Amino acid sequence: MSETLEITRPQPAVVALQLNRPRQLNAINEVMRDELVRTLAEIAADTSVDAVILTGAGRGFCSGLDVRAFGPGIPPASAPAVDRMRFQESMAALPQAIRALPQPVIAAVNGPCVGAGLALCLAADIRICSATATFGNAAILLGLSGAEMGMSYHLPRIVGTSVAADWMLTGRTVSAEEADRRGLVSEVVSPDGLTERAHEIAATIAGLSTLGVQLTKRALQANTDAPALEAAMELENRNQVLSHATDDAADRRQKWS
């Protein structure tokens, strides 16, 4: 049983992972952080899962770190730097764990997506949102660096350097319309249709070749930083050779012939 997460299997090969602290707009406390780390590791090792949906309960996706009631594990500003670094690394491990999942992750952003919540969203492979969703970096508003939890890596690659700088340096709230226009999300849907649309995308992915999907995810990640087209194509060529020889690929070719 999980205290802060709701984990369901809405359809075969799909896991829906819902942050479940709705009264706090799903702010991350110590328990949620630890449960997320454990749950993501379990999903990564589960070969029966081909797609993951990440969303929030209630009217928010995730409002970031629960600064009011995180728990005893958060060090004060007076703590030694090494202790504060370990804490920051434990938070940064969350988007790293999402990105490291072999299965594609669909972030279904149903409301405010702020700070650490934005970092989780950015680590997903596909991002869709409700028309009522909003996004914000927020750390800069607390006197901290706006670059945290992978945001200075992911955000410029998704929306471009100038737009990322605007959002991270001002901490302003970004609407669903602007998020869509800037390419942060691939789709904006009605609040009532968000869950259904996320399930449709997950079902489509889960119905494809597991190896083909996972090789595609890894190639997208690796080739975002490829030094040249030739290096990217080398990886692509090897992936095609690997996937071509599988029974799954043979069966699918037979259906098309």
Rank of each mutant, 00 (worst) to 15 (best):
A176D: 09
A119K: 06
S190W: 09
D34Q: 11
G150L: 03
G71Q: 07
H154G: 02
I128H: 04
P104M: 10
S175N: 03
A69G: 12
W256Q: 14
I28D: 08
A131F: 10
W256I: 15
L144K: 14
A179V: 09
S243E: 12
R59Y: 12
L40T: 07
Q103F: 09
D125G: 09
F61W: 01
I53S: 02
E30W: 02
A206C: 02
N137F: 08
A250I: 08
T132W: 01
V213F: 10
Y153V: 13
A79V: 06
L25S: 13
A198L: 04
R21L: 01
A226R: 04
S190F: 08
G111E: 01
Q96G: 11
S2A: 15
T4D: 08
R157K: 13
P72K: 15
L169H: 09
T170Y: 05
T47E: 06
D46H: 06
D166K: 13
G160M: 08
A41K: 00
A41E: 06
K255N: 01
L155E: 05
T195D: 14
V185H: 13
A45P: 06
I74P: 05
P227G: 09
F61R: 01
F87T: 04
P10Y: 09
E230C: 04
Q254E: 14
V188K: 05
P112T: 03
I106M: 04
I28M: 09
A222K: 15
D192H: 14
V114P: 04
T173V: 13
S209N: 11
L65R: 00
L40S: 07
L101A: 09
M233H: 12
T134G: 10
G73A: 07
A77G: 07
H244A: 14
V82H: 15
G212M: 04
A165Q: 12
E177L: 14
G183W: 01
G212F: 08
P102E: 11
A27S: 07
L215F: 10
T210S: 03
A226G: 07
G171Y: 10
Q11T: 06
S152V: 11
C113K: 02
G146W: 02
N20C: 14
A69F: 07
L19C: 05
L144E: 14
L118P: 12
D34I: 03
L144V: 12
K255G: 09
A13P: 00
E178A: 08
